[in-house]
Design a protein around this nucleic acid. Structure first.
Length: 210
DNA sequence: CTTTGGATCGTCT
DNA sequence: GACGATCCAAAGG
């Protein structure tokens, strides 16, 4: 058996340094990377960047609290928050420790472990609806507040982000961020043009495509 | 196909 | 005490 085929197929885990930059820079580069957990894997097809004290829409805008503490910690960890009384959303933490920025993971194209994802999202018949939204993504991957702080680099909780060789789109589509009240003009949402797993927002302020 | 409203609770004011 | 970085079912065209 050749061992060369294995790492090539599984890809390389993204290093800490990848995340230790501004979220606006990191976000579009996360497109087409794989979010992996045990038997499941999904390709990241939609993201949003959130900054800190200068971004009115960010959870970190008003400084450190118990909820957003992970955002201020090491880069490359998962910041998970609870919202609307029933949903979880997951972010990849950016910038060196002490500075709060993060990339919201908004949608995945399911790649493997589809059976597990379907189990985690009972009643979903169309696979394009398994992870086509930030809370759906968390459901499909079994991410809750228990996974807050999970290290995506070391895989402390078994969750990793992997580069399997598929590059980000040369020209990603972009628009304003979804579901926020402030700073809606900033074009900090990016997605893979044409991908059917991108979330369908009520408004379509799309710039770039689709 | 599109639009609307209900669900539901942790967090910060 | 108000309000979400949302989702889904149901109703309407």
């Amino acid at each position: 058996m050749s061992d060369q085929a294995v790492p090539r197929r599984r890809g390389r885990v993204l290093a800490r340094g990848f995340y230790a930059r501004g979220a606006v820079e990191v976000a579009p580069q996360l497109l087409n990377k794989l979010l992996v957990r045990d038997g499941r894997a999904g390709r990241i097809v939609e993201v949003e960047a959130y900054r800190g004290s200068d971004d009115r829409a960010s959870h970190a805008f008003s400084g450190l609290t118990a909820r957003n503490a992970t955002m201020f910690g090491r880069p490359g960890r998962l910041y998970v928050y609870f919202t609307y009384g029933m949903h979880f959303c997951a972010n990849a933490v950016c910038m060196p420790e002490g500075t709060a920025e993060a990339v919201l993971l908004r949608a995945l194209a399911p790649v493997s472990g589809l059976d597990l994802m379907r189990e985690a999202r009972p009643g979903i018949v169309n696979d394009e609806n398994l992870a086509s939204g930030p809370a759906k993504l968390c459901q499909a991957m079994g991410i809750t507040r228990a996974e807050d702080g999970a290290d995506l680099v070391t895989g402390s909780v078994g969750i990793r982000v992997v580069d399997d060789g598929v590059p980000p789109p040369t020209v990603p589509a972009s628009s304003g961020r979804v579901g926020i009240r402030h700073a809606t003009e900033l074009p900090w949402r990016w997605w893979v043009p044409g991908d059917p797993n991108v979330s369908k927002s009520r408004v379509q302020p799309a710039r770039g495509r689709r």
